[in-house]
Every structure is written in C-alpha cells, then in structure tokens.
C-alpha cells in the first residue's frame, strides 16, 4: 500500500442496492460513487426515502450492495461473508442510531462493553476500556444506570461511547439527533465534532441543514444517486 492510498479509507464504486418487492425489485441505490479519506467529517443529506440509510448500512458493513465495489481500508467488503462482515464491524466500525439501540436489561457500562465482548477481551480489560469511554463523555457516574433510567441525550451519549470504545476507523451516525431536542442535539453534535477533531472519520446522515453544518463536507442524495458533493469552507 502506498502512502496516498492509505489516506483513503473508503472507496465505493457504482454501488447499487435492489430490494425485492413483490414480483420485481425496488432500486434504493442506483450507482453511488464515494471516496472518503481518513479524518473527514461528512454529512449525507437528502429527502426521505432517497437511500441515505441504505448507503450508510452498506458503508457500515451491516449490508452488502447488490452490485458495485466497496473497499474499506483496502478490504473488498462487497465480497465478504456475513461473519467476516461481523468481524469487520467489530474492529473498524462504530455505529450511532437515531433510536439509540441500547440493550434495555444491561447497564450503561455493559452496553458500552458490548463490542469488546465480541472482540473477546477479558472482562477486566473491557470494563476499564468502557469506563474510560464513559469518563471521556463525563458519564462515569451513570455507569450503573439502565437505559430507562437515563435521558434521551444521555442514552445517545452511551451509544456514542459504545461506538468509540473499540477505537474504530469509521464512525457512522444515522440521524443521531432525530429523537432529541435542539439543545441536546447541539451538545451531541459538539461531541461528534470534537471526535472528528481528534482524528476520527465520521459520516452522518441528517435531514437538517443546521446539523449538517457541523460537517466539513456535504453529500446530497436523491433517488439513490449522489446529486451534489461539496466541501464547506468555514
């Protein structure tokens, strides 16, 4: 690998995603090309149903494209089996969802530990790493709380801690502020911006212009195609 190549984290070429629908199929992505370098902060925008989540799921190795090529840090993701994808998600990806997706019966720290469980780290190691992540978010006092004992913003912060804890190359967020009020949204976005400034690569899906404004590059998508891709100068 050359030095120039190593800067490129994501190289997606002509991504197509077809969902089977009754007799035929529905094309949610229709030839998406995207290149992302390490350290970027990208907002993906577009109307509802345009294929933003579909694209993010493919980039996050949760799903595979129907056709096209997707290289993540040089790994050809499009040709991997489900368990290989799981391994890749575990090592390289941190996911943040609109609905938080925390385990309701587990405490905050246990939720943060979850990726490390599947990384087969010994309990004491992963407990320390999870507490470190919570401490970074000033949430260590809530480590023993269950999700239903936390506010929406706190829940999303726990989810962010979980996305960080395995030190992934790529953090993906699908409308992370969609269930939060504007003040809390601002806090969460500030946090994500800080993570980016620390060197993390971030891709964010959002409807809202002021959320997208935190990013340094905005990609607009419509009917499964990228219609604009511009770097914001601040």
């Amino acid at each position: 690998m050359t030095t120039v190549d190593s800067e490129i984290l994501i190289q997606a070429t002509d991504l197509v995603k077809d969902y089977p629908m009754g007799e035929g199929s529905y094309r949610a992505l229709n030839g998406v090309d995207l290149t992302v370098r390490r350290g970027e902060f990208i907002a993906i925008m577009g109307p509802s149903g345009s294929g933003k989540s579909t694209l993010l799921h493919i980039l996050g190795c949760l799903d595979t494209p129907s056709s096209g090529r997707y290289l993540l840090a040089g790994t050809p993701v499009h040709s991997l089996a489900p368990d290989e994808l799981a391994g890749l998600r575990n090592r390289e990806i941190g996911f943040i969802f609109q609905m938080f997706f925390l385990l309701p019966r587990s405490s905050a720290v246990e939720n943060v530990e979850l990726p490390l469980v599947y990384a087969k780290l010994p309990p004491s190691t992963r407990h320390h790493m999870a507490l470190d992540a919570l401490r970074f978010l000033n949430l260590e006092t809530h480590a023993k709380h269950r999700p239903n004992q936390l506010s929406g913003g706190q829940r999303q912060q726990i989810a962010i801690a979980r996305a960080l804890v395995n030190k992934p190359s790529l953090i993906l967020a699908d409308e992370p502020t969609g269930n939060l009020d504007s003040v809390t949204s601002g806090n969460i976005m500030g946090l994500l911006k800080k993570l980016n400034e620390m060197g993390n690569t971030l891709i964010l899906v959002t409807h809202e212009q002021d959320i997208a404004a935190y990013a340094r590059r905005q990609v607009r998508i419509r009917d499964g195609k990228i219609v604009s891709d511009e770097v914001i100068r601040s």
């Binding site: 368990d83 799981a86 391994g87 998600r89 575990n90 997706f101 925390l102 385990l103 599947y118 979980r162």
Partner: peptide, 11 residues
C-alpha cells in the same frame, strides 16, 4: 440486531 451490529457473529 444490536449484538450483530456491534460485531456478534452467527455462532
């Protein structure tokens, strides 16, 4: 789904 998303394999 959550467990799989953070890296749980089928096994």
């Amino acid at each position: 789904g959550i467990r799989m998303a953070v890296g749980a394999k089928r096994i």
